[in-house]
Amino acid sequence: MSVLIFVELDNGSVKKTSLEAVAYGAEVAKMTGTTATVLALGKADSASLEQVGGFGASKVLHVSDEKLTHENSLAYADVLAQAVKQENSKIIILAKSGLGDAVAARASAKLKAGIISGVTDLPVINRNFTVKRSIFTGKAFSNVEIKSDIKILVVKKNAIEATESSEKATVETFSPILRDQDFQASVGTIEKASSELSLAEADIIVSGGRGMKSPENWQPLLDLAKALGAATGCSKPVSDLDWRPHHEHIGQTGIKVAPNLYIACGISGAIQHLAGVNGSKYIVVINKDPEAPFFKAADYGIVGDVFDILPKLTKAVEDLK
């Protein structure tokens, strides 16, 4: 009956967003009087798997088959469904991401489970089971009751404040049946900006817009990001102009982010861009135009020249160290 949490791995370690999902799942387990079990697939670092115990999971089911090391939502969903049956789980938790949604979707159809993606809070459990979810790209919320016997929740970043203890989870080997049909696609190239922080996981993001004027001007922004240990993003016009790669594009049609701190440099704040950042805890806007609409959505603002201000901020951050 345990709550089952599907985690994503990056180079064998459990991703930060997935650790939050573990903390969320463990809390739901507590609310429903059961335990939390984690499902991890592919090559994994055993210390990282045990670490999920610190976020409240008591057990990890690990499938070490190398075939599962490469992201494969088809096979992952099938293994997840098998784990749900073995554990007799009624509640399944995943972190919101392209992969999380894909796995959740296919598992939902396999298990005939109600699915809600974009959950922003712990469920309310009384006679009913109700979750709050983000809709209209962060412009609104919806409370939804899930009535199905098995429930799948895909949880957004910052849905819960995750704290870590020194507890360790026990890791068990899980040996599902892998279906050939789930391994038919042949993978060509994988381009991954491995040195950079992923936007989805970053706690701080420094982002640039057309106000940066040209791609050669990005250095001061990169310097600040480096000093803060931040990921870098950009607005749609910037990625459309190929000043920055597409996977940095934040907004309605790009990546939606939810960092603790979002610093927007030379971004006016079109509603489509705001839709991608409205999950941020704090927003800083630096823009030379005092009328830029972004200031209305910001917590802190500086009106001025980004090229003048960015180096000052970088220096102030370095002085803190």
Partner: peptide
């Protein structure tokens, strides 16, 4: 029917931006 929407809400309005 697996899910039933109960109601909708809007995010809390943002406080004033602190200008520096």
């Amino acid at each position: 029917e697996f899910t039933v929407p109960e109601n909708y809400s809007l995010p809390a309005p943002k406080g004033a931006c602190k200008m520096i």
